[in-house]
C-alpha cells in the first residue's frame, strides 16, 4: 500500500519527463539553423524558456514543502515530479546551450545547475538506500534509547567496580569521559569514533585512541591476564562483557549518525547552490537580452 516517491502514480512524472526529453532531442536533431546550434535560435530560446521555467518551478518545491495546509496534490507527488523533471533539465539545458561552453557567465550558470542536479541525485540515491540501512541498524531501538543504554552500562560497570581496586573505577570514568562520537561534520559522515582513553601508567596518565573501546578492552584484558584472584577475575570478566556491549552500542550510534548525516548533507549543497543558480540565471537572461 506504500508508494515510494519514484513509483508515485505509476511513475507518471517519469513518463512526462521522458516525453519532454524525447521531443526536445527530436527537435534538436531535426532543427538545422544557419549558425551552429546555440541558445540564440528559436529552438534555443524555446528550450531556454522551458529550462528557466523548470528551474523556477523546481525551486518552488521549497515553498510547497512548507505550505502545510496546501491541498494542491501531495508532497510526494511534487517530489516525484521534482526528481524526474529535474533530471530532464540536464538534457534540456544542454541542448539549449548547443554544447557551446566557455569561461563565461552562461557556463557558470550551467555549471551551478549541474552541481544542483548532481547533489539532488546524491539525495535521491541516499533516500532510496539509507532508510533501510538505518532501520536495520536501529533494530527497533532509537538513538536516544541507545544513549540511555550506554549511560546504563556506565553505571552498572561502576557498581561492579565498587568492590575492586580503585584503578578500575578510575579507568571506567576515564573511558566514560573520553567517549566522543560525532563532533565535526567529517567525523559524523565518516562514522568515526574519536574517543580517547587516559590510561593510568607509571609515567602519569597517557592518552591513547579508544575507538571501539579498544584501549579500554586491552587494558582490562591485561588486568585479567595478571589477576590471580578468582573474584577479581570474575568481575573483570563482567566488565569486559559490559564494555563489549558498550562498543556495539557506540558502533550503532556512529552508524546511525553517519546515515542521518548522509541523508542531510546533500541539502547543504543543493539549497545554497540553488540560490546561487537563481542569481546567475537572472544575470544570464538579462545579459543575453542586453547583448541581443
Amino acid at each position: 500500500m506504500y508508494e515510494s516517491l519514484l513509483n508515485h502514480a505509476n511513475r507518471r512524472y517519469l513518463r512526462v519527463s521522458l516525453w519532454l526529453c524525447g521531443i526536445s532531442v527530436a527537435l534538436y536533431v531535426w532543427h538545422d539553423p544557419l549558425s551552429p546550434p546555440n541558445g540564440g535560435t528559436w529552438l534555443g530560446y524555446t528550450l531556454g524558456g522551458i529550462g528557466a521555467a523548470l528551474i523556477l518551478w523546481l525551486t518552488a518545491l521549497g515553498i510547497r514543502k512548507r505550505s502545510y495546509s496546501s491541498a494542491m496534490g501531495t508532497l510526494r507527488g511534487w517530489t516525484s515530479a521534482h526528481v524526474y523533471l529535474g533530471l530532464s533539465l540536464l538534457l534540456i539545458s544542454t541542448l539549449h546551450s548547443g554544447f557551446q561552453f566557455g569561461w563565461n557567465l552562461h557556463t557558470l550558470c550551467y555549471a551551478l545547475m549541474v552541481i544542483v542536479i548532481a547533489s539532488g541525485i546524491v539525495g535521491v540515491v541516499a533516500y532510496q538506500r539509507y532508510p533501510q540501512l538505518m532501520s536495520a541498524n536501529r533494530a527497533g531501538s532509537k538513538p536516544d534509547r541507545l544513549l540511555e543504554e550506554i549511560q546504563d552500562i556506565d553505571q552498572r560497570a561502576l557498581r561492579i567496580a565498587r568492590g575492586m581496586p580503585r584503578r578500575f573505577a578510575d579507568l571506567l570514568r576515564a573511558n566514560r569521559d573520553g567517549t566522543a562520537l560525532g563532533g565535526s561534520t567529517r567525523n559524523i559522515l565518516a562514522g568515526r569514533d574519536s574517543s580517547v582513553l587516559m590510561v593510568p601508567s607509571n609515567k602519569g596518565a597517557v592518552s591513547s585512541p579508544n575507538s571501539g573501546q579498544s584501549a579500554a578492552l586491552t587494558w582490562l584484558g591485561d588486568e585479567l591476564a595478571r589477576s590471580t584472584d578468582g573474584e577479581l577475575s570474575r568481575r573483570i570478566g563482567d566488565l569486559l562483557s559490559l564494555l563489549a556491549e558498550r562498543r556495539n552500542l557506540l558502533r550503532r550510534l556512529c552508524r546511525d549518525a553517519q546515515i542521518r548525516g548522509w541523508l542531510d548533507i546533500w541539502l547543504y549543497i543543493h539549497v545554497p547552490v540553488t540560490l546561487a543558480l537563481l542569481g546567475t540565471l537572472v544575470a544570464h537572461v538579462v545579459s543575453v537580452f542586453l547583448y541581443w
Binding site: 538513538p143 569521559d177 573520553g178 560525532g182 563532533g183 559524523i188 549518525a257
Partner: peptide, 19 residues
Amino acid sequence: WLMFGGSKESVYSKLQGLG
C-alpha cells in the same frame, strides 16, 4: 527554516555531550 524548516534538538548535540 530555509534548510530544514526548523529543527529539533539533534542527536549529534547529545552525542557530543555523552562523555
